[in-house]
Amino acid sequence: MSLLAYYDWGLIWEAKEDLFRGLLVAIEVAAVALVVSVVVGLLLALARMSRPPLSWLAAVYVNVFRGIPALVSVIWVYFGISLVLGINFSVFQAGVIALVLLYGAFISEIYRAALQAIPKGQREAGLALGMHPIRIFVQVVLPQATKIAIPNIGSMFIGMIKDTSTFTVIGLLEVARVTQNLNSVTFQPFVLFTAAAGMYVLATFFFDFLFRVIEKSLTTPPAGGIAGWLTGRRKRRIELVVKDLEALSGRT
């Protein structure tokens, strides 16, 4: 009892706004980084599947940056680039770049596997129809590959949110930094870091759910409630097209 009394759990309630603001910052950095990482990852995957020397360069990049921890990456971007090139990023920008450098490499591997999983016949069918190879990639191969990649990209995103905790070293006001700041005033590390852990778990549950919904709506035929009204609209439009045709053939 005395132990519990010593820990001021009420602090969490008082700090809730700061903590949520921290979580929001973490999610913002991770979300911007995710969007850029997917683009970078896709380009890297294409480079890796192309001819040497481009494929070699991409392979070297992927293997180097998969091996670097986020903490090292962000110090390198924030302080290193400022020292060497004189470019000063804001802490937000540095965080995004640090994550993109690493997760671009991871996502490129996810996309490479997904692109290779699309049967050769899909591309051939597009070619036989006379479609331009770029159009085949964008409208036939990429949507199918993305569907395969989505679950793995989802777990990458959760990893990205967690990695933002290292950005405390450059002073980004994310969950870990907020917690440390509160702790320096209240000296309740156990309570505050338990709350921080809770924040990350909360985010994980939420985004796991979100990506599951996206995944579900990308199945063919789409499943799940949110996909329902999207599909409903398409179905109604197709029915309309068919009805038009029947009306037309009825007259002639």
Binding site: G121, Q122, L129, G130, M131, H132
Partner: peptide, 28 residues
């Protein structure tokens, strides 16, 4: 000018029957 039908059909699985055809018409 040449149409082709494959042993494995090779329809685009992420599109409806109608959109399998309309995609070809739109892009070609």
């Amino acid at each position: 000018h040449v149409g082709m039908v494959f042993q494995q059909f090779n329809l685009f699985p992420h599109l409806t029957a109608l959109h399998n055809i309309s995609l070809a018409l739109r892009s070609v």
